[in-house]
């Protein structure tokens, strides 16, 4: 028995170490140095272009040594099941507003952007190990803030309710004790959890809507844009209703970052501000969100 305990303990320790080794393990000295130099140069260029004199050059350079960027690659996690913010494009690669946004940010920061498509529920727990940041139409919540940091919000959204076309659900009271379909770990999931214990959690939003059509759930709570897409795709079968009608609070989308990496937050916030200033951001909104 003692032997077994010892074995289990070693196994557990090894595994914590293995899980930790994703990003915190220092790269070899030479590599880090080289990468830092590159990044510093890139940032210096940016600051020059911006003609910002607020921060002294040394400080910016120091702040730029965010480990996430040290290797010149920004690994972005997403869940490409959330059009128009992210979806798998016809070429098989993740596309959408968030994807275009992070690529633009990557350009500004002078790093290569690599997209990792994964389950939404695993995104937050993967930050700092498998991925550097997560851009997935993610709502800022206090719970998430305990584990990760967020950039400034780049989009404001409200949850929508998708109902069968002939549904009689109309007010917040009607939602009680209904079977609600959501995507696991999304804001809709959290809202639904408050409303009822009868929640079906799907890996993909489209599965939830399919089961709404099949009659397995009474309503689906989901973000506005995908809701409108589904209303369009399932025309005549479902309707999408603004969550404000049911008293849902509006929410803010932001990019999730490793906890405590203020350098990275500052850099990305600055990049987003720039994109807003030079009109790129509005372009993306027009191309991806309003065109839908």
């Amino acid at each position: 028995m003692k032997k077994f305990l010892a074995l289990a303990l070693t196994a557990a320790m090894t595994m914590t170490m293995l899980t930790a080794c994703g990003s915190s393990e220092p790269a070899s000295a030479e590599e880090t140095e080289a990468a830092t130099e590159e990044t510093t140069e890139a940032v210096e260029e940016t600051t020059e272009a911006e003609e910002s004199t607020e921060a002294p050059a040394e400080e910016t350079a120091e702040a730029a040594t965010s480990e996430a960027l040290a290797d010149g690659v920004l690994t972005v996690g997403t869940n490409a099941e959330f059009p128009p913010f992210e979806y798998v494009g016809d070429d098989g690669e993740p596309d959408g507003f968030d994807m275009a946004l992070v690529k633009a940010i990557g350009e500004k920061l002078g790093v290569e952007v690599q997209i990792e498509n994964m389950e939404f529920a695993s995104l937050v727990s993967s930050i700092g190990s498998k991925i550097d940041i997560a851009a997935a139409g993610m709502t800022v919540t206090d719970e998430r803030k305990e584990t990760v940091d967020f950039t400034n919000s780049y989009y404001e959204a409200v949850q929508y309710v998708i109902l069968p076309a002939d549904s009689e659900i109309a007010t917040a009271d009607d939602l009680k004790d209904k079977a609600i379909g959501v995507q696991l770990g999304t804001t809709g999931d959290f809202i639904a959890e408050e409303l009822t214990s009868n929640v079906s959690q799907y890996n993909k939003a489209v599965d939830a809507v399919n089961d709404l059509v099949n009659g397995r759930v009474d309503l689906v709570i989901i973000d506005k844009n995908p809701a409108l897409v589904f209303e369009n795709k399932f025309e005549g079968q479902v309707v999408a209703v603004d969550g404000a009608q049911f008293g849902f609070e509006p929410e803010e989308y932001a990019i999730a970052l490793p906890k405590g990496d203020t350098a990275l937050a500052d850099q990305i916030n600055a990049a987003i501000d720039e994109l807003k200033a030079d009109g790129t951001f509005d372009e993306l909104v027009k191309t991806y969100i309003e065109a839908e």
Binding site: A121, V124, T147, L184, G185, D189
Partner: peptide, 14 residues
């Protein structure tokens, strides 16, 4: 799925 649910609530997978 229960384990996944808890991960999605606590953001801690281990």
């Amino acid at each position: 799925r229960a384990a996944n649910q808890i991960t999605s609530r606590t953001y801690e997978a281990f």
